[in-house]
């Protein structure tokens, strides 16, 4: 047996990486990385009870393109905090003022918040938000959360 047969290092080579036609879905969407909303702005707006501005600020720069799940979770928790401080009766009016882009982003946050937040009371409120978002943006907004590859 030839001597170099004992060297099996070549088996650990990722040959697919050398295939020029190999499709890597991670190199999609390399525009702005999106570092998440500015927490300080959001908290200060919340402390002065300007909830609508706080929500708008929280929906800025969603960290959709980052691979760091912690950043995404942190942003989700921040948005959930804003959503949670709303009174159920104010939700409809606020949702009516959102743009299409903000509506889709908020829908993503609502789904993610349902996934990671353990509190019952918040989930109840999130379902409220969900219902209002569907009423305003239709089933299309749910489809967009499911079909979009840039997830939270």
């Amino acid at each position: 047996m030839a001597k170099n047969m004992q060297n099996t290092g070549y088996r650990k080579l990722d040959v697919d990486a050398y295939d020029p036609e190999n499709y890597n879905e991670n190199d999609e969407g390399v525009d702005t990385p999106g570092l998440g909303p500015d927490e300080r702005t959001v908290s200060s707006l919340m402390s002065t009870n300007r909830l609508e501005d706080a929500l708008r600020a929280a929906l800025q720069n969603p960290p959709l393109n980052t691979k760091n799940q912690a950043v995404k979770d942190k942003a989700t928790q921040l948005v959930a905090k804003v959503l949670g401080s709303y009174k159920a009766s104010d939700i409809e009016a606020t949702v009516k003022k959102l743009t299409d882009e903000e509506g889709d982003t908020l829908m993503k946050y609502v789904y993610k918040a349902m996934e990671i937040s353990p509190e019952n009371a918040l989930c109840q409120l999130l379902l409220n938000w969900h219902a209002q978002l569907v009423a305003r943006f239709g089933l299309g907004s749910i489809i967009r959360v499911m079909s979009d590859r840039r997830r939270l």
């Binding site: 889709d104 943006f137 239709g138 299309g140």
Partner: peptide, 15 residues
């Protein structure tokens, strides 16, 4: 107008 840009309308419907 511009053959490099697409304008997308998000609808409320199913795909």
């Amino acid at each position: 107008q511009d053959n490099t840009v697409s304008h997308t309308l998000r609808t409320t419907h199913l795909p």
